[in-house]
Nucleic acid binder design. Structure first.
Lengths: 324, 324
DNA sequence: TTGAAAGCGCTAACAG
DNA sequence: CTGTTAGCGCTTTCAA
């Protein structure tokens, strides 16, 4: 920066101003500086800026996993909005592991991000403490956490599960089973599903707990196991579309009529859900919209705007297609 | 850090040592410092450390997009290896836009990452210049770029396309068409496919250029258009599995026998490819392995190890299933 | 509108 | 093994 200043015949501060608040520099002066920057290919050191200014313009994003997953959409939505505002994204993956989450969050906080986004609630009390102590805006996403640290953007996983149960029962199904991964959001969906069944005076079939994150193979295997047991159900709710798709394909392979013999519903509304044969009934959730809303929350919190709404419930919409 | 030092009755540097090189501090001293850190919940400021030590322990990852995409696997692979070594990941998405790429890379470089990973070659000469001037290890991935900036980890997209053509021809197909997105890697795959056809003395059907990134819907629409033209082909190669899957589902819907009437091949070997009915023939590519290898390249380059191999070709493997 | 001075919170280099 | 000294490259006052 000193070199640029010398080259432009101004003081170092002026270069800093051209970079940060160009409107406060006289056009002629500005031009001299900009020319020098262009000639040299100078790239400002934002690390030094972060230290001096105590604003890093970095936002941390903590997700369970990004591979083959819906959370990638949330990161995408978050990035789009935040990058436009000059923020960079620091990405971390917990793989649903509480210990890992805590050390990851600690490492991220060491980078002094201006804000942080988390999928779900923290997995451990330690992480929660770290986050509270960090004193930066935090947004939890993908679930309307009861007692959030700061902001929440999501929907009720319980309500989503219940919605599916009600739909299946209205369609005349009586032997309903839920299947889902071994993590908080899946369990909430399953609980809502069971509640919906109970509310109709029916008895739910025992839920099946699968590995997280689920995949098409997980769905296929679960379906096979059920078929081997004689398929005692007439409707299945998978807590994620990709698992439901795997199960649906297995039904096709084994010539089990869907929805004739068995109804299948998923959750997420993957682009592929609508393309399946038959198209999959599911609950629509826009991971990208969640990311975008989270970014907006964070942006206004960083701007110091006392945001009226700390809780944003994006709601949940049943998309009835042909598998039910 | 000064507070911790005072509390532990040592000098500030000693605290720094406990945090960075604990083996160089006497166990008793170390314990006093660690206790003080635990009591206060102190989180080291790595930004200041980066400025003072000129090592940020940040690696930048620049991908076209992470949503619904294979590149998420690469980021995953990269992260796993790098996080274990104490690095954080700064994520950026170009959406295949050269202008965006350049401003993104500039912003990332301002954060002084210790290394950078790029999917493919830079989209513009400006980006390339920035990267060269940055003086940090750079790894280009997903394609064996001819003249890389520094390191490359990938496979030959041309060879992959050619492999598919040879397979289809060996299976007796004669009217082969390639379909793929409008970006460099897709085009290379299509070029290889065309070359394979020409080498057999056949005439390729005109390739179809689709939007990037492709989706199942893209595949369905492309398939519909072809059917409406009377489906002049007996084999189709889609440059990505998800597009091929969309096309395959459309064939099922329109009762076009696969592979009887039409052979279909994809590329990528998505987990879902093997689950399709019939299972999809494809070219296996592990995005995660690419990320992992890239991380290892970067790690050894940052360690100053004069890495013997600057080019790692992970090769390409045809997975013959039932759609061909 | 521009500039001079004083740090931001650490690590590197050197000494003891 | 521990401590002292001197910055890292910026932004933030404050003054002119």
């Amino acid at each position: 920066m000193e070199d640029i200043a010398a080259m432009a015949g101004v003081a170092l501060v002026t270069v800093s101003r051209v970079l940060n608040t160009p409107e406060r520099v006289a056009p002629a002066t500005r031009k001299k500086v900009e020319d020098a920057i262009r000639r040299t290919g100078y790239v400002q050191n934002l690390t030094a800026g972060a230290l001096a200014g105590s604003r890093s313009r970095i936002v941390a994003a903590v997700v369970p996993t990004i591979a083959n997953s819906i959370f990638a959409d949330t990161v995408q939505g978050l990035t789009e909005t935040l990058e436009a505002a000059g923020y960079a994204i620091l990405l971390g993956q917990t793989t649903y592991d509480a210990t890992r989450e805590e050390s990851l969050v600690r490492a991220m906080l060491g980078r002094r991000p201006d804000a942080l986004m988390l999928v779900g609630a923290p997995l451990s009390a330690g992480t929660r403490r770290l986050l509270k102590a960090a004193g930066i805006p935090v947004v939890e996403t993908w679930d309307m956490v009861e007692r959030p640290i700061d902001h929440v953007v999501g929907f009720s996983n319980f309500a989503a599960g219940r919605l599916v149960a009600e739909h299946l029962i209205a369609r005349g199904r009586r032997r309903l089973r839920g299947l889902g991964g071994d993590e908080a959001r899946s369990r909430a969906r399953l609980a809502g599903f069971a509640a919906g069944i109970a509310a109709a005076g029916l008895e739910p079939q025992p839920a099946v707990v699968l590995a997280s994150p689920g995949s098409a193979t997980t769905g296929r295997d679960a379906m096979r196991a059920l078929i081997d047991q004689g398929l005692p159900d007439d409707a299945l709710f998978f807590t994620s579309d990709i698992i439901a798709i795997g199960a649906l394909l297995e039904c096709q392979r084994r010539a089990i009529a869907v929805p004739g013999r068995l109804a299948i519903a998923g959750l997420g509304d993957l682009e592929l859900a609508a393309q399946m044969v038959p198209p999959l009934t599911t609950v629509r959730i826009s991971g990208r919209a969640i990311g975008k809303a989270a970014a907006e929350q964070l942006l206004s919190a960083m701007a110091g705007t006392p945001s009226a709404r700390r809780r944003i419930d994006l709601g949940v919409e049943l998309v009835v297609r042909e598998t039910t």
